[in-house]
Nucleic acid binder design. Structure first.
Lengths: 209, 209
DNA sequence: ATGTAATTGACCGATGTGGTCAATGATAAT
DNA sequence: ATTATCATTGACCACATCGGTCAATTACAT
């Protein structure tokens, strides 16, 4: 019963959610220990199971909660006035990296969730994700100026190439950051490469300049 | 003692190694179960610990063995006569994907190993990797024609951009393959995008055409 | 028939699991 | 001061699994 949980002291709510987030991200659903969660949350075992009937219910609440939070934060800060698709994707990536630096534990949890094999978890993800992601995807390309492209094929190809390229960049930077200081990372220098790259793309896909 | 193990019937050797590979890849070092390994290998618990004194020794042997095997196979098939750096990187990626399709379990294991947190494992990886990777890296760029570049900076930048781009592509294709048929994947269509991309890069980095 | 090596699986103590529940503490109403 | 209500505790449960051992059995060569 999450109603009981929601009417709880917010500071304690957060402590419990963060403890669970960390544990699930680190160990995965099945190996995550409720004992460990209550220990780091500083509450008793009984209390956790007073708020959530069982492990699965806790996980479900957790996933929905943080998915909502991150999506909201993402679109609050995404600049939708940028009409150039390449520049839009660049800001999108920058924002993604910002959010990853700001909430690394949440991203760890989400990544771990997407790799889960437990049937109970897959079920939860399907329910939550389909609506959430589909709604988000169209908003990502809202208001884009497509008149500069040679034709429709180019648009789709540009999107594809942008997506996998920036993803590769993002992963590499993330890895580098983890190896260097294990905390947040300054992307400024790395983005100089991205600038070069973006100009390259424009030349390749746009009718003129 | 691996000498005992090595003088064992090769078919049984393989059964044991594959079972262990699978289990470690799936669960990670600490959560991997030796009980599960012997069950899928079809041998008794005692026999496993007759060949390897303990869990760590088994893991160590496993890692060294498959690292050797994959590196050897990789360089056996890599075309080092291609002197254009962009084309070389393309064939390199194609080869990597081929090997991933051919030995997905080995790659799963390697990825899992690189994410291990157990101190015992990190120690093993350090010992094995440093020599192995450093030796490989120089071979990757052996015999490359650098006369077409404008200057040294361009070469380094090209390598960086190639690396993270192809990595992003590779990951995306891998994910797609997993979602579609969960087995091997036909990269032919996807590589059309890569062709476009490679031409783009050449234009951007080479002195002429 | 004998010696040697391969192989078994019951067994060990230790640790940890998700979940329960009787008991206690705190708070507010009477 | 008494009572009723709710939050909170942590010892406890039965069970599962862990890495590792070892006396006993089987297979095989001499």
């Amino acid at each position: 019963m999450s109603s009981k949980f929601l009417s709880l002291n917010p500071e304690k709510q957060e402590r419990i959610l963060n403890a669970a987030l960390k544990e699930f991200a680190l160990k995965g659903y099945e190996n995550a220990s409720t004992n460990e969660i209550v220990k780091t949350a500083g509450i008793s075992k009984g209390l956790l199971f007073h708020y959530f009937n069982n492990k699965k219910e806790l996980y479900q609440f957790l996933y929905n909660h943080f998915a909502d939070v991150m999506v909201e934060e993402f679109f609050n800060e995404l600049d939708l006035s940028e009409r150039d698709i390449f520049e839009r994707m660049k800001t999108l990536m920058i924002l993604k990296n910002k959010l990853m630096a700001r909430h690394p534990e949440v991203f760890d949890f989400m990544v771990a969730a997407s790799m889960e094999t437990a049937e109970e978890v897959k079920e939860i993800l399907n329910n939550t994700n389909t609506e959430l992601i589909q709604a988000s995807y169209s908003r990502l390309f809202e208001n884009i100026d497509i008149t500069r492209f040679r034709d429709e094929v180019d648009i789709q190809r540009a999107i594809n190439i942008i997506m996998w390229t920036l993803q590769g960049f993002s992963n590499q930077e993330l890895e580098k950051a983890k190896k260097l200081n294990k905390a947040h990372h300054d992307f400024d220098e790395a983005f100089k490469e991205v600038e070069v790259y973006i100009e390259m793309m424009k030349k390749a896909f746009y009718k003129n300049v």
